[in-house]
């Protein structure tokens, strides 16, 4: 699984961080950054929720 963040589209709502604060974080630059890129199948539902609930559709999950 790979998580992509389109930082041109992200405006730092941080909904993803609200779902998984150990994976996503809104930075001082006002956009979201990944804190880890190591995911297991147990993470899948949360990551899909983050993609689905991103208000700017900036997230994409591959694999």
């Amino acid at each position: 699984m790979r998580m992509h963040i389109d930082t041109d589209v992200c405006t730092g709502h941080g909904v993803c961080e609200g779902i998984r604060p150990d994976v996503f974080e809104v930075g001082d630059d006002g956009v979201v950054h990944l804190l880890t890129e190591e995911f297991t199948e147990d993470d899948r539902q949360d990551l899909e929720d983050a993609v689905d609930q991103c208000p700017t559709q900036a997230l994409r999950l591959e694999g």
Partner: peptide
């Protein structure tokens, strides 16, 4: 205040 708001959402949850 983009940085703290969602940290607080997680905290409220």
């Amino acid at each position: 205040q983009r940085r703290p708001v969602m940290k607080l959402r997680a905290l409220i949850a």
